[in-house]
């Protein structure tokens, strides 16, 4: 994948597929270290499942026999001198189930890739799952960009879904302008 925003979309799609109601995507840049966390309250995984997650031949999908998302992210992080770690609580054992994916990248490494269009990734996620609460926060030394769809929904009311075209357009420019203001 050619930029980090596509990896983020892909990993967050795992959270969507796990039935999460809340998904928080955070990017924190400190000097040359970029930390990405994606936290969800989806079905989670058992320790056994988490162990197998880094193996591309592990997937619960039925359409093909390999799962590529997590191995791809790990490969990218490790190439830059960072790594991926996953902690998860399965709904078979915990009431407060969910998954936390943490990926660390070194942005000064020659194998680091561009961040890409993060706004587009967030808008795509909201379009696909208008009923999920998404939190997005990207903090950099020069400021931060943030958004919370639960807050937006409380202003919009129950009748207007977040995948309404005008609303999606608003969210897109809301994020774009925050990035421009930095």
């Amino acid at each position: 994948m050619k930029d980090l925003s596509l990896y983020i979309l892909d990993i967050a799609m795992n959270s969507v597929r796990a039935g999460a109601k809340h998904i928080a995507i955070r990017l924190e840049e400190q000097d040359v270290v970029l930390t990405l966390t994606i936290q969800d309250d989806g079905c989670g995984m058992t320790p056994e499942q988490v162990k197998r997650l880094f193996d591309p031949f592990y997937t619960t999908r039925k359409t093909r026999s390999v799962g590529l998302g997590v191995p791809f992210l790990q490969m990218l992080a490790q190439q830059t001198g960072g790594d991926v770690s996953i902690s998860s609580k399965s709904d078979t054992e915990y009431a407060d189930h969910g998954t936390l994916v943490t990926a660390v990248f070194h942005t000064d490494h020659i194998d680091f890739i561009p961040l890409g269009n993060l706004t587009e990734t967030i808008v795509t996620l909201i379009q696909g799952s208008p009923n999920v609460d998404f939190i997005y926060c990207h903090s950099m030394s020069r400021g931060s960009v943030a958004m919370d769809t639960a807050q937006m929904r409380s202003i919009l009311g129950e009748d207007i879904p977040l995948d309404n075209y005008e609303v999606l357009n608003f969210i897109k420019s809301y994020l774009q302008e925050q990035y421009q203001q930095l």
Binding site: L6, L9, D10, M13, G128
Partner: peptide
């Protein structure tokens, strides 16, 4: 919109 789609340009 799985990994295969996203990496090929589905977004």
């Amino acid at each position: 919109m799985a990994t295969c789609g996203i990496s090929a340009g589905a977004r």
